[in-house]
């Protein structure tokens, strides 16, 4: 698989912060993790990019942080174009996760419902 087993939880945790659940569904409710994994299965370069980003996020202790601390760390990473130990740009990694979460979420009919996009035919 494109993402090692021990990084699955990191991926899920990060996507959950990209589009958190509230009264409406969040990224994980609409299977955005599966969307990303399928994307990585078809793109080895992107898979390597994710692998490095997730590995570093995991190493920074992301998985066990409470939600607001996760957001704080992701915000900090978003502002760093490089960082010790990271082979990929942390800001590019956060941006990619945000884009892919949106792509999974807002192409899903239940994602459409959250913004009021209704399809009549």
């Amino acid at each position: 698989m494109a993402v090692a087993d021990d990084l699955r939880e990191t991926l899920r945790g990060a996507l959950d912060r990209m589009i958190p659940a509230d009264d409406d569904p969040g990224a994980l409710d609409l299977d955005c993790d599966r969307f990303v994994l399928e994307l990585l299965d078809s793109d080895a370069e992107l898979a390597a990019f994710y692998e490095n980003g997730l590995r570093n996020l995991h190493a920074e202790g992301f998985d066990s942080l409470p939600p607001d601390e996760k957001d704080r760390l992701l915000s900090e990473l978003e502002s760093c174009s490089s960082r010790d130990g990271w082979a990929v740009s942390p800001s590019a990694f956060v941006e990619a996760m945000a884009q892919h979460a949106m792509e999974g979420f807002y192409t899903h009919p239940k994602g459409w419902q959250t913004v009021g996009f209704e399809v009549t035919l």
């Binding site: 589009i19 958190p20 996760m97 945000a98 913004v115």
Partner: peptide, 16 residues
Amino acid sequence: PAWGQANKDWMREGYR
């Protein structure tokens, strides 16, 4: 914001 609760709120509030 490009992600997170604030982004979701903006999408929900702004689209229509």
